[in-house]
Design a binder for these strands. Structure first.
Lengths: 199, 199
DNA sequence: ACCTACATCAATAAAATTTCTTGACCTCCT
DNA sequence: AGGAGGTCAAGAAATTTTATTGATGTAGGT
């Protein structure tokens, strides 16, 4: 270990939500993690590069987005402390990433490398379960998002986001929230004004 | 070719300063180049990563520096349009880079990859000469810099820089110039005040 | 034909960040 | 003792990034 203990506690607590590890196992797991620091606006991953890591955020705040040729960005995920983020597709397949991941604040992450990841699953099969749960949660959340786009209006999505993640508004620039919601920053700005009036 | 012709002209002109190429050779050379775009503050290379490319700046402005553990940066090179930049040590040896290279403006580069570089030298041996000249120029400049540190004061170095590269002051933040000169930004600021008074 | 829900573009305002300058006070060298 | 230069803290200035607003447009639903 070469990171302060408290950081490991954060990720261990995250793991403990789904599987129970022995002291030995915890130690082994932590030994596979490496710390990565990013400055604000720095890319963790750029579309086109291969993603060799999955990561867990211990500090800061990142966004993952697809960018089309015209430079239009569609944000698909935010990640704050305690969240996992990465381009799974590229990580597992070894193909170039389609996602770009960028730090929105100075951030710190734990990274686990593709090989160590395999090693981990081999040594501690319980992690299969852990990552399955992670993935399935992500999948469910994704489905919900798609659904909300099909059924509801932007205002509804905005309110949902606000109640579900109240901290976002304080930490994430509005234009990024707009991109996440699938509207323009201008429109989000107007929506907020509306809502403020009503109350 | 997939970049506008004028960009190729810039790099071809640079090459032509030292060696003459046939149309065929030019075409081959250009075919090995790939375009890389960087946003302001983005790293081209981070200390610790392996540098797989050498690059030629077609737009923007970058700096290369060593950072010590305390985060102190010592700038060793600036590169504007028409300059080559990279961590040769890492490029040739395959060892992790000790230099960090960062864009100071949104920038565009041509990159040539290690393998293609070898290929180039093999196919067009004239490039041996070209890169030798490049290297030796860099070497000479480096020697001069060391010398100026041993003999002269900071003011002298500053004035030299200003006459040699007048454009620097307009494009490069003073604190970077200070770092390049080996003084603190505060001290540089005072030196400038002094000089302004005298004239 | 007329809403509603949203987009675009341009201008401006407001906030945040980065850069530069200054003052006060060291230190080392000769 | 004086010159060359450093550190730290505070402000001022410049630049960049974000957010807001107004004007105007479009597509789909009723």
């Amino acid at each position: 270990m070469k990171a302060p203990k408290s950081l490991y506690n954060l990720i261990l607590a995250n793991v403990a939500k789904h599987i129970a590890l022995t002291a030995e196992e915890k130690k082994f797991f932590c030994s596979l993690l490496r710390v990565k620091k990013l400055r604000k606006r720095q890319y963790l991953l750029q579309a086109g590069d291969v993603s060799r890591f999955e990561q867990f955020v211990t500090k800061g705040c990142l966004r993952a987005y697809y960018a089309d040729e015209q430079g239009h960005e569609r944000i698909v995920q935010f990640a704050l402390e305690g969240w996992w983020i990465g381009d799974m597709a590229s990580f597992f397949s070894g193909e170039p990433a389609t996602l770009t991941i960028e730090a929105m604040e100075d951030s710190e992450l734990f990274q686990i490398d593709r090989n160590d990841f395999e090693l981990l699953l081999e040594k501690i099969p319980k992690f299969e379960r852990f990552f399955r749960i992670l993935l399935s949660n992500a999948h469910i959340a994704h489905q919900r998002r798609v659904l909300s786009h099909l059924t509801g209006g932007a205002q509804e999505r905005y309110l949902d986001l606000r109640t579900k993640y109240p901290s976002f508004e304080q930490r994430i620039p509005l234009r990024h929230i707009a991109s996440y919601l699938g509207v323009t920053p201008e429109f989000l700005s107007r929506m907020r004004k509306q809502l403020a009036k009503k109350k």
